[in-house]
Design a protein around this nucleic acid. Structure first.
Lengths: 140, 140
DNA sequence: CTTCTTGTTGCAAATAGTTCTCAACTGCAT
DNA sequence: ATGCAGTTGAGAACTATTTGCAACAAGAAG
C-alpha cells in the first residue's frame, strides 16, 4: 500500500505511516480529531494540522473515503472495504453500515430510466432508535 | 401558515414574518447568509443570529427543510414541496429530481431491521448519460 | 554516504459557519 | 394596560478545517 502511494508521488513520512496504520486498524468511522488522538498516542508530536493534510492527500490518492455527515465533522474510513451505505443515529452519532442489493438495483433502474449510468452514489439514513414496541436486534 | 406556527407555540415576531416571506418567495435553495442578506433588505436590523435561530425554529416546526451538502453551508427551502431525491449528471452538473416509492419503502424496511425509525435521508446518484444505445427521455 | 531540492511538518494564527451570552425588548394571554 | 416568558441584536465564543511560514526530512542524484 505504501508502495502504491509512493508510486503516486506521495512521500512516505513517519507521520503518514502512523496515520495509515491507525486508519487500517480502525473498525469504526473516526473523525480527524479522533484520528489525531490515536495517532498522537503512537507518535507524540504528530499535529492535528498534519492529520488534516494527510487525510486530504490520502483521499486524493483514493485510499480513504471521506464522509461528510450532516453538519458534523467529517469521518473517514479506508476504501478497501466493499461498498456499503450508512445509517446515522441522530442521538448518539453512531454510524451503522448496511448494504441492500435491492436498493442498489433500484438505483440502477431509476438511473437507467432517466437515461443514466450510475458512477457512484451516496445514501445516508438518519434516524433514531425505535422506542415503544421492541423490534430492533442489538438490544441495548 | 402563521396561524399554524402560532398554534405550535411559535411567536410571530416582525423578524420571523420577514423571514417567512423571504423563504416563501425564494425559488432557489439559499443558505443562512443569503437569507440574511435578503431579509436584511426588507428589515434592516434583522441580525444574522436571528436568522439562524429562526431557521432552527422553523425547521423544528417542520415548515422548512435544511439540506447539508458536502461540508458546504446548509441551504434551506420551504417544505411544502413533495419530497424528492437527486441524480447529478457528472458531466454537466445538471441536477435531476426523482422519487421512487419503492426505494422509500426499502429504506424504511432496512432501518426497521436495524431497530431504527428514519427521520430523514439523503440519496444522491452521480452518473453520466448513457452512450451507445439511445435511452434517455427528457433531452435537455 | 553526502548533497540538494522539494515536499512535509508543527505551531499559531486565520477562516467559515453556526451557536451562545446577556441585557434590553416585545408578543400575547389575561 | 400589565406581566412574564419568549425573542432579539451585537458580539464573543465555538467547532471544524485551512493556511502562512520557518525548520525539517524524504529520496533522487552524484
Amino acid at each position: 500500500m505504501e508502495g502504491a502511494l509512493r508510486d503516486a508521488g506521495v512521500r512516505i513520512t513517519r507521520q503518514r505511516r502512523v496515520l495509515l496504520r491507525v486508519l487500517a486498524e480502525a473498525e469504526d468511522h473516526p473523525d480527524a480529531n479522533e484520528l489525531h488522538r490515536r495517532a498522537h498516542a503512537l507518535d507524540p508530536g504528530l499535529s492535528l494540522a498534519t492529520v488534516y493534510r494527510t487525510l486530504s492527500v490520502l483521499e486524493e490518492a483514493g485510499v480513504i473515503d471521506r464522509h461528510a455527515f450532516e453538519g458534523k465533522p467529517a469521518r473517514f474510513e479506508t476504501s478497501d472495504r466493499p461498498h456499503h451505505d450508512h445509517l446515522i443515529d441522530l442521538e448518539t452519532g453512531a454510524v451503522i453500515e448496511f448494504r441492500s442489493e435491492k436498493i442498489e438495483r433500484l438505483q440502477a433502474e431509476i438511473a437507467a430510466e432517466l437515461g443514466y449510468d450510475i458512477v457512484h452514489h451516496r445514501l445516508e439514513l438518519y434516524g433514531r432508535r425505535r422506542k415503544g414496541k421492541a423490534g430492533g436486534n442489538t438490544p441495548r
